[in-house]
Write a protein that binds this DNA or RNA. Sequence first.
DNA 1: CCTTGACCTTCCCACCGTGGGAAACTTCAC
DNA 2: GTGAAGTTTCCCACGGTGGGAAGGTCAAGG
Lengths: 155, 155
Amino acid sequence: MNIGDAAKASGISTKMIRHYEGVQLLPPAQRTESGYRQYTENDVRSLQFIRRARDLGFSIDEIRDLLSLWQDRNRPSRQVKALAAVHLETLDKRLQELQAMKSALEHLVHCCQGNDRPDCPILETLAGTGNDASDADASSAQRHRHGHRITGGAA
Amino acid sequence: MNIGDAAKASGISTKMIRHYEGVQLLPPAQRTESGYRQYTENDVRSLQFIRRARDLGFSIDEIRDLLSLWQDRNRPSRQVKALAAVHLETLDKRLQELQAMKSALEHLVHCCQGNDRPDCPILETLAGTGNDASDADASSAQRHRHGHRITGGAA
DNA sequence: CCTTGACCTTCCCACCGTGGGAAACTTCAC
DNA sequence: GTGAAGTTTCCCACGGTGGGAAGGTCAAGG
């Protein structure tokens, strides 16, 4: 089975299959004499495993752990559960941040007339000119912001 | 005002202030003779505007648009609202994906005993060995996946 | 046999937003 | 004048994904 077929069968692009091999998420694939990667049904099952884990939002590092637990017949399910629970908390955090953004923006959009006039509560709030107390003027509230902000971006 | 003070006053790191200038989100700052960037109260207001927009999850590109609408006294609030509405939809999409992940994972975690035994519905589901019909075996369902997947990752 | 087209290989580059750090310089207070 | 804290630019990293170039391979059809 060439990489393209494995890609179709697993739902992971050829690009990503090679990438996963590169970051050691997968062991180096077998090669034909000419250098083509060869995959077995078993390899495809690993790929599917990875895809499903990605679909649940697990990071590469977490998937590495999941895979090794999967391979280990003597794993205690406790470990799997713990790993999943940690990820669940992460998801929850993101969800909450996102939900907060949504509510705030929803409120603003709702308040904006959306006509030909220039007055706009959305801009006013962003500018800090709004009468909205929830401004959180940074000077006072230097919150952590140490990590990743939510990926709310678009375009 | 040096960049550090502007950073403190706006809640944006010096790194990011320079970056925003680099990607033309901000006009090039004034400089002292020795090359230090100088900021006015007005500049700080722009920075705060940006920070608040980022806090609502707007992308750099969207903020560029928001800034120019803000500067334009004759903007129709319709335009601002439209921009915000588009972003709102994006947020909503992400929220839904995230929510779906969370529910699915929550279910699995709930089902897993989390003891010393190796049986684990989480792994079984990822492996596709689970009796869970919601498997979505890629071979049949080559969905778009053309863009960014949700940033559910951790670690 | 040779061409053509579909596949494969590696390698580098892009996105988004953010931070880290090096090497050099400036400013200020002591 | 010396040292500390600020600033400058530049390059590199992360996560995960895709794009594309330049080249090799394979099978089918003329």
